[in-house]
Every structure is written in C-alpha cells, then in structure tokens.
Computed example of a mutant assay.
Amino acid sequence: MSDPVNLNKFRKAKEKAGKEQRAKENRAKFGRTKAEKTLDQARTEKLKKLTDAHRRQDPGKEG
C-alpha cells in the first residue's frame, strides 16, 4: 500500500506552479527596460514617418 497524500498540499503546490508560470509569461511580455521601450518607440515613429513620406496624396483628400 502506498503512503497517503495530503491533497491540500498537492492543490497548493499546483496553484503555486501555475502562478510561477504566469509570472514567467508576464516577465517576458511586459518586462522591458526603459531603454528598450524608447528604442522600440523611436523605431515605430521612424517607420511611420517613412511610410507617410511615400504617400502619393493626403489620406483625407479623395481624388
């Protein structure tokens, strides 16, 4: 016969593992430094300006 298992401890360990996994995902998703954020924002703005500069006409005008 096997040893009895404390289901409460098992449940808590499973919940803790789930929280750790969620924290790991959030660190990967949101955990960026300020320098990385500003670099990404600068790249986005530069790309937007570049694409806007290559438009044939203003988007508000039809013709």
Rank of each mutant, 00 (worst) to 15 (best):
M1E: 12
M1Q: 08
S2V: 14
S2A: 14
S2Q: 13
S2N: 12
D3R: 01
V5P: 00
N6D: 15
N6F: 09
L7P: 02
L7A: 05
K9C: 13
R11N: 12
R11W: 11
K12S: 05
A13W: 04
A13G: 04
A13V: 01
A13Q: 05
K14C: 06
E15I: 02
K16M: 11
K16T: 13
K16L: 14
K16F: 13
K16V: 12
K16N: 11
A17M: 03
G18L: 07
K19A: 07
E20V: 03
Q21P: 03
Q21F: 14
Q21G: 05
Q21V: 13
R22A: 12
R22Q: 12
R22K: 10
K24D: 13
N26G: 05
R27T: 07
R27Q: 12
A28I: 10
K29T: 08
F30S: 02
F30R: 01
F30G: 00
F30H: 05
G31I: 02
G31E: 08
G31Q: 02
G31Y: 04
G31L: 01
R32T: 15
R32S: 15
T33G: 00
T33N: 02
T33H: 00
K34D: 12
A35W: 11
A35R: 06
K37M: 13
K37G: 04
T38Y: 05
T38W: 03
L39C: 04
L39R: 04
Q41E: 10
Q41G: 00
Q41Y: 05
A42M: 07
R43A: 01
R43D: 06
T44D: 15
T44I: 09
T44H: 10
E45L: 01
K46M: 09
L47I: 03
L47V: 02
L47Y: 06
K48H: 04
K49L: 11
L50F: 14
L50D: 11
T51Y: 08
H54Y: 11
H54A: 05
R55D: 11
R56G: 08
R56S: 13
Q57R: 02
Q57Y: 10
Q57L: 04
Q57P: 01
Q57T: 11
D58C: 00
P59A: 12
P59E: 15
G60Q: 07
K61D: 15
K61M: 10
E62Q: 08
E62Y: 12
E62V: 08
G63Y: 09
G63W: 08
G63D: 13
G63N: 07
